[in-house]
Design a binder for these strands. Structure first.
Lengths: 282, 282
DNA sequence: AATTAAATGAAGGATTCCCTTCATTTGGAA
DNA sequence: TTCCAAATGAAGGGAATCCTTCATTTAATT
């Protein structure tokens, strides 16, 4: 089993193969990912040989049959995909100090943030927020820190941002919402019932709902218009919101990019106010 | 990218599915890569439903059959894989993607967190907090998110934790402080005057002060007994607190390690309370 | 409680696919 | 050229898999 990759295996045995088998080996080597899903007949067609020759290559490479070779290729594809997420996080699980483990796990989560599907959703969220006349932000318990942070950062670059504090009565703030408003909810396990009910109300009234949550099908993920996810590493169980904060930062950065002039104007206004009120120690 | 991802498709139709189909959809959504190679029977086995239900899900999602759904999943896996290799090889130095820039910067900060010698300071903070009879936490404006997070996490593993809310009158809470108490302040530029005054008061009364700040000689850093720093990368100027959250996580993890039995006892107590109050949606 | 509709699972047919066997072709040596 | 061995492809058996049909169970409504 040998950690040798399939590619290596082909290279090692290549010289011993027959002409037809070399054709197949070459094709597999150059199109391994696509070949992972093809049948022996299809592979033979692509390599301009018969199905039988493909099967014979399997034996020549040391497999019990084509099925076994295909399984090997498929698992290789899976590993390649999860190489980042699992291999680097499993090893330091026990042997190194706890701090390093936490940090490496966190880096892992950050990398997952900028996968393609996520990035598209983030841009959608950015556009929606830029167009919105108001932004209402909610998040309780564990999620409140992220909600507050988002509220704080968003307030620094635009106006009409409201945070639903866990203690305050947020129902009153709903009366101001229009069809152009956006509600952003943060919801992570263990999901707060308050947040879920709030989200359901928003969805029922056809107001745009952006959910920042741990998976697409979480209670609020199911009903939201836009869903941004940060996978909590189930292994550790330690659900940190550091990656959520970074996700928020991405949204803020996106708004910065797309709405520069308004952002700058708003910040200047705030600067003036802060200095006159002497809030900060310079 | 005209192709809606399979994940999105599942989410859109999820509410219309039957109970058994939801099981399958959930399983697929959470193990999509591995499922790409499994048969309908195997998927049904994993999702605890029959093979038939898996096939019916295919129809419910709009496919011509299970085979077509499987092909879609497989092609999605291929695309994801291509995206990864392109991203990492094509643009190694030019970060045209603003999101990637933010994330890489954040990873940089995280690594500095454990490379630096302030690991010792973290352990000191851990020991101090474990011994303390009370922990008072303060942080305003930008730092409040981190303060709240720390307060929330610390409350989940020990008692007598108090957060100085920005609106509340925290002066009253000072009357309870003893010589065995600890005050943790979060202070990042631009430094809030309220926080600084609070810290000065604590220092004058010989109560242990832990500062989480951006440099040793920041306003609160100068007067604190223990100083934990997270360098804000001056280049970007975007002062995120994601690394501060991670720093907090390190402290929490440290307490976990050194004070296990008390932590577990406290969490069990909380669990009981939460379930009886029905706070969370399981 | 009774009825009905939907959902689920079991079983069998139909298809696809892998694998083996056998015939044909290719290439090289006597 | 003739012979032989290796290689290749075609065809059929057998296994796995998908799909449909039918009976049972579940859930909801009257």
């Amino acid at each position: 089993m040998e950690n040798v990759s399939f590619q290596q295996l082909v290279r090692n045995k290549f010289s011993d193969l027959s002409a037809g088998q070399k054709k197949v080996a070459k094709y597999l080597s150059e199109n391994l990912n696509q070949a992972a899903f093809k049948t022996a007949f299809q592979i033979g067609r692509q390599a301009a040989v018969s199905e039988t020759t493909v099967i014979r290559l399997s034996y020549a490479l040391g497999f019990e049959g084509f099925s076994e070779m295909q399984t090997t290729i498929q698992q290789g594809l899976l590993q390649e995909n999860q190489a980042d997420s699992e291999n680097s996080s499993r090893l330091p699980f026990r042997n190194s100090d706890p701090f390093k483990r936490v940090i490496l796990n966190e880096i892992q989560l950050l990398k997952q943030l900028i996968n393609r599907s996520n990035v598209e959703e983030i841009w959608k969220a950015v556009d929606t927020i830029i167009k919105a006349d108001q932004v209402l932000i909610a998040g309780h318990m564990l999620s409140h820190a992220a909600a507050y942070w988002f509220s704080y950062m968003l307030s620094s670059i635009r106006d009409h941002v409201t945070l639903c504090s866990p203690t305050g009565e947020f129902l009153e703030k709903f009366s101001n919402l229009t069809k152009d408003s956006v509600v952003v909810v943060f919801s992570f396990p263990r999901y707060s019932n308050d947040t879920i009910k709030l989200a359901e109300y928003v969805a029922e009234n056809d107001i745009c709902l952006i959910a920042v949550t741990d998976r697409l099908l979480s209670p609020v993920g199911r009903i939201a218009n836009i869903v941004l996810t940060t996978e909590e590493n189930a292994q550790t169980g330690s659900n940190s919101i550091a990656s959520v904060i970074s996700l928020v930062d991405l949204i803020i950065e996106g708004i910065h990019e797309k709405d520069q002039e308004r952002v700058q104007k708003h910040q200047q206004k705030l600067d003036k106010m802060y200095t006159s009120l002497n809030v900060f120690n310079e």
